[in-house]
């Protein structure tokens, strides 16, 4: 940030003369110091991954989870201030639960993103609060099948409801990233935290919009990207945590669950190899340059 607040950064409810809310911008700074989080939306599901920097060797491995389940079909990962993220997850669960209580059906991922965006935005308005120090990545798979109402009994005609509009797609994978300002966009690939620049560059190479990559491939790509985004020199060791959500015909049966340990190990193995190869490649390039 080039300019300093000059007094306009002391509270949320005060704009600077050039129309900025410094508190929000500082919150973004808090995010930029956090471990890298990414999300990948592919044709048959969503993968979430986070780089957990190990702050102390006394922490129990794999015990402190950073990816949270919000509803069966929804997961959230976040970078920045972890307690803020936890509170955000609590709120997301409340929103999902309220939706179920009112409409007797799971909340669509997009609607939850909207609710969460609204919630975070409210923390940019008042003197008495500070904006969330997190950017959250929300992944979900809205069922592509016809779902019964929660608690439903009985059934319609065996031939199905008449007069359906054919050839329309309903539900599917969805990914959104919500920033401290409350801004949210839908993404094919999202990254936040310390290594976001490198991660975004890698995500762009995947050409996710084409919808060719499968969720199993995406797990491996996600592991590789987290390893690339991790800065060896500056950071301590890290742990990789990953979760995924597929449709009802996929490996997770429509649920948001942890990536199984064997697949995680395989993905991490491949990621390490890819990194080493990259390094070797760099060396060769440099050699070439020397010869020129």
């Amino acid at each position: 940030m080039t300019s300093i607040g000059t007094g306009y950064d002391l509270a949320n409810s005060i704009y600077s003369p050039d129309g900025r809310n410094f508190q929000v911008e500082y919150a973004v700074k808090a995010v930029e110091n956090g471990g890298t989080s990414i999300g990948i939306r592919c044709k048959d599901g969503v993968v979430l991954a986070v780089e957990k920097v190990i702050a102390s060797k006394l922490l129990k491995p794999n015990a402190n989870k950073r990816i949270a389940t919000v509803d069966r079909h929804l997961g959230i990962v976040y970078s920045g201030m972890i307690p803020d993220g936890r509170h955000l997850v609590d709120r997301a669960r409340d929103e999902a639960r309220n939706h179920r209580d009112t409409f007797k059906s799971p909340i669509p991922t997009r609607d939850l993103a909207n609710r969460m965006g609204g919630y975070m935005q409210a923390y940019t308005l008042y003197q008495s609060v500070r904006p969330f120090g997190v950017t959250a990545i929300l992944g979900g798979f809205d069922s592509d099948l016809e779902q019964p109402v929660d608690g439903e009994v009985g059934s319609g005609p065996s031939c199905g409801g008449g007069g359906k509009v054919e050839g329309q797609k309903h539900g599917g994978p969805w990914l959104a990233m919500i920033e401290p300002s409350g801004t949210y966009w839908g993404y094919y690939g999202a990254a936040t935290g310390k290594g976001r620049q490198a991660a975004k560059a890698e995500l762009e190479k995947l050409n996710l919009a084409a919808g060719e990559i499968t969720i199993k491939e995406a797990v491996k790509e996600a592991a590789r990207i987290i390893y690339i985004a991790h800065d060896d020199n500056k950071d301590k060791d890290f742990e990789l945590e990953m979760s995924w959500i597929s449709g009802s015909d996929g490996p997770t049966k429509g649920k948001h669950v942890e990536v199984p340990s064997d697949l995680l190990a395989e993905a991490e193995g491949l990621a390490r190899k890819a990194i080493e190869k990259d390094l070797e490649g760099d060396d060769e390039e440099e050699k070439d340059k020397m010869e020129e």
Partner: peptide
Amino acid sequence: ERHGGQVYSIPLGGSL
């Protein structure tokens, strides 16, 4: 569009 025609009955006790 998604489900076509559907019929639900809610009798006295409030079951669906």
